[in-house]
Design a protein around this nucleic acid. Structure first.
Lengths: 209, 209, 209, 209
DNA sequence: AGATAATCGAGACGGTACGTCCCGTCTTGCT
DNA sequence: AGCAAGACGGGACGTACCGTCTCGATTATCT
């Protein structure tokens, strides 16, 4: 048995207090935005003293970095359905489901805006979340190339942007609705565009019938 | 004869004060974000009394709406170069130049985040700026259809998203650099993708050589 | 003949505007006190533009000095009834009537307070008003000495203070009421005290019966 | 056993902050007058947040009332030297010393002026300070009557006014200096005047030799 | 009669203070 | 030691006025 006594009267950060703060943090973020977000309001919502928050994280940015990291680790799931069409479909379905959650819709653009302002936050997010997601996307594309579904000459950078950009733009930036067929059409467009990438552009220049 | 007399001794808001406030407003926005932006700091930076600001706009949101509108009106320029390739190139060049400006890079994602929170701001922006830009984009595509460069069956919604989304994603969201060739490759990709839209997807399914 | 032409089309400060401002000035002074008194509120009450006030006086203190001087000149009336008792009675009756006026009750202590703060105001008041009143009091006492009603050896300074101090203290400082008999008793006390001044104090030391 | 527990973690107003505010309050009062006195300047001078002031007193008047009361309680000292001459001398010496203090010279007339304007302040001061001082004065006079030094028939009201009025008038209202002999002469005058009060005025009417 | 210039009201200007609210830090006393 | 409660210095809120300054419109004099 481990004799790991705390130095007499030593208390330990209580996990349920931490969890309560974490929930309150994201709820408040979604409600008022990162800039306006105050530790005090988080503590109030978590029914916790302010000191309990500051004992855990030194700042708002540190709090966001750590909590987002904890969430993000389980998020970059690689599907590998066996075909490019299946992989793209699964990826877009997942992203669609994620971006439909109100909390995410509110927090994501705010996070990107704050990253433009706070270098530490930007670094933390880019190295912890975006890198993983980008690596996952690259793997997906390389598998398709290996299967012969895509040309080896395609521009990976551009292809990755293509896969991610449209859904984000539609759902987060424009705020327009994604009608029943939109997601399906988007899948088709993405697939078709990927397939022609790396080819000779002249081939497509004939006027469509 | 115009009977446009002021009511005797009426003082008038001075244009140079308005201009100074406007400059300070955007500078502060870029610096701290919309949520944290305080009227007091704007007035201080503009070397102006707080009352001079409140005399002009009742709130931060009203201020943003009007000032962005004033800026945005001159922004939705339709190029009409005579060919789809030229139009797309001109549009992306313009957007690229715009998104390279530091002030815009800071403010744009913040604006989108705030629009998700403030319905009045969202409405003002969407009806004043996005509607115009979207209309301009539609006109561009319809001209290309009329010229026979694009199929009449293409999904306009999706096509518009395609044209706008990638550059925004790359420059604003990921924050990654747009290398010398990136913009050119993006133009080619956009053009090729547009041209195949509305066609039978099966035709492109043959494995690339 | 004096060739004192105005430079063609010269306008002149309108007397009724000046009078209206003067009335409003004292009314406002009585209402809020000198420190809180603002030119703006005076102009508002006088239904006059702010500039009309500033065109006449450069400051609040200058305004008070000039207006009080204009009022005070007609105030230091020497009665000369032929006897000390008559003179003292007349003086105290006059002072009593003056200090009963609400405007005076309000303004006088405020003026004294402000004089302790503003050297220019203090100088203006002391040389314009207090000097005259003090001279008048001295003349009154000297006449009584000449008549043999008072000793020549009495201390003029102290005697003057005695005549003025009690009524001011009672009416202005303590704010207690001056009952019907108070003023009469005060006259008797003042008279008796003056008469014994300058004499040998031992004479009065016998115990009262 | 005293059950005076605070409700768990209750914070308590810090006495040194209160003292700092009090000092700053009187200093500012003496500097600019009660009307012009701003809470903000008091807080600034005390190097304290505005909230720390408002946490203690709801208004300027309440602040003045309480602080003056706190000061005034230790002020109404009854000397009781055993003789009227000694008592009067001690009282006037004390008053002289008090009225010589610059802070008092500035604040006192301002306080009286403000009392004419603010009923709550007037009530607070009259019941807390003036009542005590007046009671102390009455006791002094009654002792003298008991000793046979003064007539029982003298008018207490008038006598009290006499004792207090002259020094206040001289030092505060006229602002004239109190030369070396002035205070001594004043004592003699006061004493002599008191002794003759309540007697037959005719007895003193014979012309002084 | 017409020209002219100072005075008039109105009000925008840069400021300061209001009294409230909330921030992040720090202290206190209970568990 | 961890916890809640809350006082602390500080800063922004949006309003109300401050004294200064700038307007057209008015008005009284002088040509």
């Amino acid at each position: 048995m481990v004799n790991k006594r705390q130095p007499a009267g030593a208390a330990v950060l209580q996990p349920d207090v931490t969890a309560s703060i974490s929930r309150a943090f994201f709820a408040e973020w979604a409600r008022v935005g990162f800039g306006t977000l105050s530790i005090e309001s988080v503590a109030r919502r978590a029914r916790v003293g302010k000191a309990a928050v500051y004992r855990r994280w030194p700042s708002k940015v540190a709090m966001a970095s750590e909590l987002l990291h904890a969430i993000g680790t389980g998020m970059a799931q690689v599907p590998d359905t066996g075909s490019l069409e299946g992989d793209i479909g699964a990826f877009l379905d997942g992203a669609h489901a994620l971006l439909r959650r109100p909390l995410v819709r509110r927090i994501l653009p705010d996070l990107h805006a704050e990253m433009g302002r706070s270098a530490p936050l930007a670094k933390a997010i880019r190295t912890n979340l975006q890198r993983d997601r980008r690596a996952m996307g690259e793997a997906l594309l390389r598998r398709a190339i290996a299967r012969g579904e895509l040309r080896a000459s395609l521009d990976l950078e551009l292809a990755l942007d293509l896969v991610a950009a449209l859904l984000y733009w539609r759902m987060i930036v424009t705020g327009l609705p994604t009608s029943g067929t939109y997601l399906g059409d988007l899948k088709k467009l993405t697939l078709a565009s990927l397939k022609q990438m790396g080819g000779h552009p002249r081939g497509q220049e004939r006027a469509p019938p």
